[in-house]
Design a protein around this nucleic acid. Structure first.
Lengths: 206, 206
DNA sequence: GTAATAGGTAATTGAATGATTACATGCTGA
DNA sequence: TCAGCATGTAATCATTCAATTACCTATTAC
């Protein structure tokens, strides 16, 4: 064995808390997306972010506040992504917004964390934020994208089915069930490849 | 105070376990629908059913098995309700099935328990059951109701948005938010009254 | 250089919760 | 009528988990 510099006490570098915050939010988005608000633990999130459990709690105060930050951040991502689409012109807007929505699946857990918040609308803290977030998206579609009530509704319907199919991991059945195959093809006219690809990579994780 | 018959030891009547089972499943459907699989506790369910917590666990073995039974029972309700619609003729089938689906909201927590199972598709036990249930509904639409892939998809899209709006308790904002008002009107062409009515009664519960 | 501050963790705690055990009592058939 | 089974509960256990405390060490400002 080399004896050089073995016990040299080299300092462990530290990150700016703002960066660490972002890492934790990203990890939390993934874990909340998979297990939901109650099912996810601060310890799982901490490990996914590579920090200790107390650090997570200290940085966000409570698990509840962390979850709120996760869904508010998710909403910012969605609206930013939608506005970018809008800035590129208004041809085929519906399809391009849909496409942008599907692309958000790349941010692991983002749409699913939101979905979990949507089904907890009865919660006194989470509920109001979740409703507000949903209504912000609706307001975007109506006021910025120029959709009428029916088009906005159609768009949201498609989004919620997509979220559900992703939550269900329906892509797992793509090859084993004809019905699943057909349903996924109908639900994702384009972008099916993206869903399948992400499905495989997350199987590898687990 | 009257002294008559005070300590008369009158027996506490007992229920057949099959009936009790049904009571518990109904209570569990409501509690799981509100809090989700992880958020609901066996104690809450027991209290809602008017029995002790150990009784719930003993009857179903584990909380997980209880949840599985809840979602399988929910699916039976849905398909029974859909088949009843089918038996009444095939005019306006889409609208009548949609109407029957909304009526299922009367069974408190039924659609929401399912929705919670859908977003836990990554769970090794819940996931497969949830996917199977969803695919059964799809198979009904295609094979029994005679929908094509696109119509079936449209139907499911509408269903998932309805589930989401119910989970969000969006009806709470019906009077306070123009956007919510408009969205709900677009999403539930008929049957809006039912949603609002149920929303009020469940506010009274809480 | 050296306080002071910021970025972190190990150890622990207190409450919640699913599950188990032991026990009590109503019901039913021979 | 009474033995055996079914219906049910009180008490408790073992675990998990969010939160707290106490402490350590980079980094930074002066």
């Amino acid at each position: 064995m080399s004896n050089a510099a073995v016990s040299e006490h080299q300092p462990i570098p530290r990150m700016k808390s703002e960066d660490r915050r972002e890492l934790i939010l990203e990890a939390a988005t993934g874990v909340f997306g998979q297990y939901g608000y109650y099912g996810a633990t601060t310890d799982q999130i901490a490990r996914a972010a590579g920090v200790s459990q107390p650090y997570v709690v200290r940085m966000f105060g409570t698990k509840e506040r962390l979850f709120i930050e996760v869904i508010e951040r998710a909403l910012v991502f969605i609206l930013r992504s939608f506005r970018a689409v809008l800035a590129e012109g208004d041809q085929d807007l519906r399809a391009r917004l849909g496409s942008a929505y599907v692309e958000l699946l790349r941010q692991r857990g983002l749409l699913l964390s939101l979905m979990h918040s949507f089904v907890l609308g009865g919660d006194p803290v989470i509920g109001p934020r979740a409703r507000q977030g949903f209504l912000e998206v609706y307001a975007f579609l109506r006021d910025e994208a120029g959709f009428g009530p029916d088009d906005a509704n159609r768009f949201l319907e498609g989004g919620m089915l997509l979220n559900t199919l992703v939550g269900l991991r329906m892509s797992d059945e793509f090859e084993t069930s004809d019905a699943a195959n057909e349903m996924l093809c109908a639900a994702l006219p384009q972008k099916l490849d993206l869903l399948l690809e992400l499905g495989k990579s997350q199987q590898a994780d687990a």
